[in-house]
């Protein structure tokens, strides 16, 4: 949990095979939360994860940690609804609404495999996603890109950006619509110090509007989180 001084007190939640430990009950002040209940995923005969349960309350940042192949990225894709759990359920609970399984549109996903349109410019990439949710002026988008240090790269092709700038653009695409659920998969892999500072700011801002799941093997990145879910 976040303490009064703002530093993070780490709590490790181990999800062992066949057993899980849930977080403490939700305080009434939290308006929404993400609940994963006994989630399991199998690809063919290969079991990727089994019986994963946890709850993330609005305002919390949770690091998903584990060895390579433990299913960290798969868990993020499950939360986003990009793949379905073999067993169990993932729900977004919001005050005044019924349990919702349709989480996708509330999510912002930043993944390491650079899901960007490489043939489009930086501006065209962001404008495309913006137009999907309504009207946003070019000036607003350019202003938004300022903090990602991409405003001057508006007309550059995404495919010609350095890996660090592509990572920044991915962060911009993942966050411009103020997602309730921010899913970050190794977000700092290609970021420099300034980029990591920006990442920290983004994660802090997300505390006031929703939850963050941060899949990482990097100890520095994991420190951004309030607690951990270990797969």
């Amino acid at each position: 949990m976040q303490n009064e001084t703002g530093s993070a007190e780490m709590e490790t939640l181990t999800v062992a095979e066949g057993a899980h430990r849930s977080t403490s009950s939700s305080p009434a002040s939290f308006a929404s939360s993400l609940q994963c209940s006994a989630v399991g995923k199998r690809f063919g005969t290969r079991v990727v994860m089994r019986d994963v349960s946890f709850e993330v309350k609005s305002g919390e940042v949770v690091a998903v940690v584990g060895r390579n192949g433990a299913g960290k990225s798969t868990l993020l894709r499950l939360v986003a609804g990009l793949t379905r759990p073999t067993v169990g359920s993932i729900r977004w609970l919001e005050e005044g609404t019924q349990h919702s399984d349709n989480l996708g549109w509330r999510c912002g996903l930043c993944a390491p495999d650079a899901p960007l349109y490489r043939e489009l410019t930086v501006g065209e990439n962001l404008e495309f996603w913006a137009q999907m949710r309504g009207a946003v002026s070019r000036e607003e988008l350019q202003a938004f890109l300022e903090r990602f240090q991409l405003r001057t790269r508006w007309n550059d092709l995404a495919g010609e950006l350095s890996s660090g700038l592509r990572a920044r653009l991915q962060l911009a695409v993942a966050t411009w619509h103020r997602p309730s659920v921010l899913l970050l998969d190794e977000p700092g892999a290609n970021l420099d110090e300034a980029g990591r500072t920006l990442l920290r700011e983004i994660v802090d801002e997300q505390r006031v509007r929703g939850v963050t799941l941060l899949a990482t093997n990097d100890a520095r990145e994991a420190e951004l989180a309030d607690r951990r879910v270990e797969l």
């Binding site: 894709r77 986003a80 609804g81 990009l82 996708g104 549109w105 999510c107 996903l109 993944a111 495999d113 650079a114 899901p115 960007l116 349109y117 490489r118 996603w129 999907m132 949710r133 695409v173 619509h177």
Partner: peptide, 11 residues
């Protein structure tokens, strides 16, 4: 481009 996932989320 790995953009199918983003299309599913954002469109």
């Amino acid at each position: 481009n790995n953009t199918l996932a983003l299309l599913r989320l954002g469109c």
